[in-house]
Nucleic acid binder design. Structure first.
Lengths: 237, 237
DNA sequence: CGTGTCATTTTGTGATCACAAAATGATTTC
DNA sequence: GAAATCATTTTGTGATCACAAAATGACACG
């Protein structure tokens, strides 16, 4: 598919589909598209991301894509190689360890900060998301699982109103998500165990220590067990 | 002052001063300039940063500036307001608390990770930097102090070889540095106490627990004491 | 003198262009 | 047939342009 808008037109054309014509709308759209692609595993580590390619795919000019790629590179979600090429970073054992360590330091903390802001309404929504997750796990839809798992965690974290810790955690998820997708591609999703139900109960009971423990266990179970072996295997094939 | 390079020239001009003609050299130069400006406090919170203005100041076209500003906005070092305007974010008590919390979680951890890689040579360099810091503190040169204090901490952190925690901490420093500059502008630098000497001794002795403690105490002393009161005062004047 | 209005200027955004470096693929050479 | 070489294509980068939104300042009006 080529550019939706050919070079025949000399001037910019008004967007018809999008109601949001606010400042930086195109950039926001591109940013959301790439972020969502990374988080749901549609971008594979090592895969090259070209400016013109993405621009054509999204039907926009290279300009907003350039800025978005720079943004995501700043968050270490993408890697700008010395020759200027942009790609999804490869995971290494050392990197994996660090992400795991950072997640275990930051996410339980932010969850506890969010706790006072989490209502029974939130608990209800979380339970709904978690039910969806269970379905996707058994049906083996890894992409949907990743999207929902992200939604679950960030529904909690966002309640904190955090402007500092939340972006840091955002960056971490963007970094490990593409790799985890490849993991699920190998081992499947059926064996995945999470601690979401413990977390929901802790929220309902407004039990900070229990929420911390649930989140930390969820991280450890979700990443710690799977990732290490895969990485050591990966070096051999 | 207008653009140094007028519109009379039609094509790009070869750089004469810079020896590095590698890919993205201009962007790298702009990035380094803005980062250094933020870290040493030459940018004041609330101050607007215009693309064309910065471009003219640095003698480059708006293009690389646009990308750099997007990068730094992604690291929360700059803020893109809904109207597209870019400014140095204002510090709030909530934000300050979060930065402090994140620093105390991440920096002692990374310091300990770096410890095995820190040699006596590093300790010697750190002592030299710390001597410089002491001089600047008494002479009241806040900008130099900030630059050297950053150099001290990141000399330690960088030794870890970290690719995950280090960028997170980088982002944190970019966020609080401009604010701290305004603090030093009010209370001066003479009263500043740090734990650098304890940290150096811990490195020499390869004592992880002591290094953690020194870093955490340094953060608490440096930020915790000063910032809070200033922020509560700021609301009244 | 304060306030609302309007013309002007500034600014961000998206698009396009020109160029050089890099990747790609065909072709030649041994 | 494998490796080196060269032409071609792709790609990132910096610059410039056109446009619209926003900010600014002058000015009229009450």
């Amino acid at each position: 598919m080529a550019l939706r808008r050919s070079a025949l037109q000399s001037g910019p054309v008004k967007e018809v589909t999008g109601p949001s014509t606010s400042r930086g709308a195109t950039r926001g759209q591109v940013d959301a598209a790439v972020r969502s692609g990374l988080l749901s595993g549609r971008f594979i580590p090592g895969k090259a991301v070209t400016i013109r390619g993405l621009a054509a795919e999204l039907g926009v000019s290279p300009m907003p894509v350039r800025e978005v790629l720079q943004r995501l590179a700043a968050e270490n979600a993408l890697e700008v190689k010395p020759n200027g090429r942009v790609q999804v970073p490869d995971m290494t054992p050392a990197r994996f360890d660090e992400v795991l360590k950072a997640r275990r330091l930051l996410e339980p903390e932010l969850a506890e900060l969010a706790l006072p802001h989490l209502t029974s309404r939130d608990a209800k929504d979380l339970r709904s998301i978690d039910d969806d997750i269970d379905e996707r796990l058994t049906s083996g839809d890894a992409e949907a699982y990743m999207r929902l798992n992200h939604a679950f965690h960030f529904r909690i974290y966002r309640a904190s109103g955090s402007k500092v810790l939340l972006p840091l955690i955002d960056s971490l998820w963007l970094q490990f998500a593409p790799f985890m997708r490849t993991v699920y591609g190998r081992v499947g999703t059926a064996s995945l165990e999470d601690r979401h139900k413990e977390a929901i109960r802790a929220i309902e009971e407004q039990n900070g220590a229990a929420l911390r423990a649930a989140i930390e266990a969820d991280i450890t179970d979700g990443m710690g067990l799977l990732g290490k072996e895969i990485l050591s295997d990966a070096s051999g094939g």
